[in-house]
Amino acid sequence: MDAMLAEAPAAATDSRRVKISIRGAEKRFGDMVALKGVDLDLYENSFTCLLGPSGCGKSTLLNMIAGFTQPSAGQVLVDGRAVQGPSADRGVVFQEYALFPWRTAIDNVAFGPMLKGMPKAKQREIAKRYLAMVGLAGHESKYPGNLSGGMKQRVAIARALANDPSVLLMDEPFGALDAQTRETLQEEMLRIWEHERKTVVFVTHSISEAIFLADRIVVMATRPGAVKQIFDLDLPRPRERSDADFVRLEKEIKLLVRAEVQKLGVI
């Protein structure tokens, strides 16, 4: 078998430290089961994509890791401790950017350091560095209202990184962007991740985005939301979307996802 894929967590990775451990996590809203019995271990500094159509509970799972919502049953552990609520150690990037519109780009990025009580000069120095890292040097004093969607998401990524979290949670971060901006940001995301190793959990419904980015793709099932299949990828980076292996994997996952979409009954 060439480049990639073993369908269960590979034995070779067992020596790596488990960063996020999801054990029998369930989420119910009244009678509706949004997420059923998820068991998942994510390794430190790995890049995981949660992939599935809307309604598969991928965002719910991400929100449980972030601490925005608690599982109805089971546990979410980060570094062996149950997640109680949001924390500065788990940075979140949202699809809708969630920038503070009354703060300039640099003040948005400096938000985390400010909360930590760092001196003003230090806050600005950190914020400036991360803005430069996401390619926004020179845009420091602009308000979010004056930035394009792609630039806003760059600021949001810089803001999450400036806090130096060990986990970076991204909820369809490029979902609202046009195709070109999206691909550029995917490439930059990888470049940043090589540089600032974090445990990344990235929610998406784009198969090609997931294959382009991830070490591990968790394909989710719908009704109820659950883990359907896990792919561990060892395609070398940078990945080429026209590569035979890339295309083959894309087809395979597409079939899986299509089956889940059909279960929803709306096509």
């Binding site: 972030a66 500065a88 949202f94 969630a98 503070f100 909360l115 806090n163 949670l169």
Partner: peptide, 14 residues
């Protein structure tokens, strides 16, 4: 107040 802003801030340690 946009709840996503509250989430963003609390994930930054607020």
């Amino acid at each position: 107040v946009d709840p996503v802003l509250l989430r963003a801030a609390s994930s930054l340690g607020a």
